[in-house]
Design a protein around this nucleic acid. Sequence first.
DNA 1: CAACCGTCCGTAACCGGTTACATAACTCGC
DNA 2: GCGAGTTATGTAACCGGTTACGGACGGTTG
Lengths: 338, 338
Amino acid sequence: MAEATIRDVARRAEVSVASVSRALNGLDNVRAETREKVIKAANELGYVPHAGARSLSLARAHAIGVVLPDLHGEFFSECVRGMDKEASRRGYLLLLSNMHDDSDQAAVALRAMRGRVDGLLVMAPHIAPETLEHAIPPALPSVMLNSHADLPGRPALRFDNRAGAEAMVDHLVANGYRHIVHIAGPEGNLDAAQRADGYLAACARHALPARILPGDFNEEAGEAAAREILASSTPTDAVFAANDMMAIGCLHALRSAGTQVPEQIAVAGFDDVPLARYLSLSTIRVNIAEMGARAVARLIDLLEGKDLTRASETLPPELVTRATTAPRTAHPNGAAHA
Amino acid sequence: MAEATIRDVARRAEVSVASVSRALNGLDNVRAETREKVIKAANELGYVPHAGARSLSLARAHAIGVVLPDLHGEFFSECVRGMDKEASRRGYLLLLSNMHDDSDQAAVALRAMRGRVDGLLVMAPHIAPETLEHAIPPALPSVMLNSHADLPGRPALRFDNRAGAEAMVDHLVANGYRHIVHIAGPEGNLDAAQRADGYLAACARHALPARILPGDFNEEAGEAAAREILASSTPTDAVFAANDMMAIGCLHALRSAGTQVPEQIAVAGFDDVPLARYLSLSTIRVNIAEMGARAVARLIDLLEGKDLTRASETLPPELVTRATTAPRTAHPNGAAHA
DNA sequence: CAACCGTCCGTAACCGGTTACATAACTCGC
DNA sequence: GCGAGTTATGTAACCGGTTACGGACGGTTG
């Protein structure tokens, strides 16, 4: 019942464990005949090496740990998909762990990785850098994603949220919108804060009034914001939500209330989730899959000694203009499909 | 630089490694004073146990391996999310590995799990059962998801694709549609085959003509099918795609061509991806997250000796009716938003 | 005081691999 | 026929934990 070990193979092939190891790992100091005996025995026993034992003696697990917060829908899958693609291309496995919003739990998740992975990918926009630094086993190489500040020795990859938000405001202004409301993301979330900053900066630059409504990255927050906007007396001709899900909630709520989008109020989001395309929602593309893949690539380079810079990277944002922010002056009636 | 080991802690606390192990694992045969010394030393050194070594001597990794095929978008994230939720609740980590369509690669992925995980979750609707059985390390408990046939000793969880497809056809018929075309999934895919079966069975039951167009689960296939339908002289009043993405592709292509949905042609899908709700697409809900969570629960029960039945489960499908299959007779013009 | 018991702790074996080092066997040159 | 050099192989230590086993110690009992 129990799986065969290297010693079982050695016994059956009538050689030593060292020879089995050498033969199966393709070292060249093994007689061809011996190698064949070993391979035959291994096949007969259905021997599969015990990766745990292997990584213990090699001090190499060929796995990388991924610690992510609770991500909204597609974001999560895209991120993991990008990571997995690069990881499997380079022969690594991904060990996944969700850290929920609590920082103690995060510490537990991070510690659980010790001794099973060669390095860590950590996305924790909601955890203070000192807390994080303390929670990550110090000798584990790691790459941070969307983290607050740089941790010493740990490269970070992040999106230029601020530039993205500014680009969107610029776009809205260029298309004739002047009263732009921002629906913010959750308090304490770095992405959310940077997007709000970019919005404020751009408004200031254009000498436009700024108005921020609270939100939490969920669709319902977008709906609530729409109600608020419709009920309020402040004039509003565009809504820029800190993420697509809120923009979508807002879009639906506005349309359900009979408001024409974009004729009366334009709507824009951030992230470019697949849904956005179907709803013709203008947004800022955040290629999270690529970020994941790059993070893995950086980490593996680091592990294999190929990355000596340890520099952080900022990925440029990309403005995606669709029908929900069509130019204010010209608005053909039914140009709403992808 | 290197991480502290249990021996470092023992040295600093001036006790033996055995005491350190006992103290840190909460065994009761340790004097309170000793335990404190150990904890103090461990904290000072920032000691984190090496999970790999631990699992080697305990023969328990507290991790479960997940081997999935290339899943389309949200399906993947939902599945992993459900698994992760249950796994982290019960103190297990998830080791992820994509197996692409190739069965050799699948074997590699499965073997790489040996010695790292206590059990396996395998979704492989495209791999022959014998091949699979041969590829899974025999002593690894595992739960199959959507697999072809039952493997001995390995419980399987699957959706009742056939019943779901029948339910959708029944619904279309009840709503007055008579010329229903099915867009099939990829050749050799079990889900696809069962859905097609259900479609054929229901058509036969209603004495309706059946017509199947080829597809591959991607949006483009849905678009191609739409063109085919529009170009063909065969009358068609409803399209039932084997998954939502194809239905969505078809829906867009039909609308772009000026066809009214559902007035001229109804469209239905399968899966109920989040997008479906926004597009008011009728579909069969496949609660993949719950399936993932259940699979994890079953596997852990198996690992901990709580599940003795090893029985397979079939999860019932759920029909979700929305605007794209509204009754044929009454079709209010603009009832298309969620 | 000896016998006995319980508690706490340390030594060393073990999990399943890899590999440094020692050794054996074999070739080659002289 | 012998030493040097090369190559294939085996022995045992090691990776970092856990734990069976036994010893030391102190307290109780007869």
